[in-house]
Lab assay of single mutants.
Amino acid sequence: SPISQSQFIPLGEILCLAISAMNSARKPVTQEALMEHLTTCFPGVPTPSQEILRHTLNTLVRERKIYPTPDGYFIVTP
């Protein structure tokens, strides 16, 4: 029987999409709110552990794709 394939999207890209959507909705993007958003909006995607989430967010900050503030994470705009 054929095996169904799913699209692979890197966690960093999913986080950027989620942060962008939450920023547009003016929702604060904390790590907890981000986990909740991922569970709700990406039900088929396994939720990352806190450690993996933190590591991926730090990587995105180093890559200058997002930036942290006391009010949460935001997408870097050119």
Rank of each mutant, 00 (worst) to 15 (best):
S1A: 02
S1H: 06
S1I: 01
S1K: 01
P2G: 07
P2I: 10
P2A: 07
I3E: 14
S4I: 07
Q5E: 11
Q5S: 12
S6V: 04
Q7D: 10
Q7C: 05
F8E: 11
I9M: 15
L11P: 02
E13S: 10
E13L: 02
E13F: 02
E13T: 11
I14R: 08
I14W: 06
L15P: 00
L15W: 00
C16V: 08
C16L: 11
C16N: 07
L17A: 12
L17T: 14
L17Y: 10
L17C: 06
A18L: 01
A18T: 07
I19Y: 00
I19S: 00
I19H: 00
A21Q: 12
A21D: 12
A21R: 11
M22P: 01
M22R: 04
N23I: 02
N23G: 05
S24I: 13
A25I: 09
A25W: 04
A25G: 04
R26L: 08
K27W: 04
K27C: 08
V29D: 00
V29R: 00
V29Y: 01
T30F: 08
Q31S: 11
Q31N: 12
L34Y: 00
M35F: 14
M35P: 02
E36N: 14
H37A: 02
L38T: 03
T39P: 08
T40Y: 08
C41D: 09
F42Y: 03
P43L: 07
P43C: 05
P43S: 11
G44S: 13
G44E: 13
V45Q: 12
V45C: 12
P46N: 05
P46G: 05
S49C: 08
S49Y: 01
S49M: 01
Q50D: 15
Q50V: 05
Q50K: 11
Q50P: 09
R54I: 10
T56Q: 09
L57D: 00
L57H: 00
V61H: 06
V61R: 10
V61E: 10
R62Q: 15
R62S: 08
R62D: 09
R62W: 07
E63V: 09
E63L: 08
E63N: 10
E63I: 03
R64K: 15
R64Q: 09
K65C: 03
K65Y: 05
I66F: 00
I66L: 09
Y67K: 15
Y67M: 15
Y67F: 11
P68K: 07
P68L: 13
P68T: 14
T69L: 04
P70M: 07
P70L: 08
D71Y: 03
G72K: 02
Y73L: 10
V76N: 14
V76E: 14
T77L: 08
T77D: 15
P78Y: 07
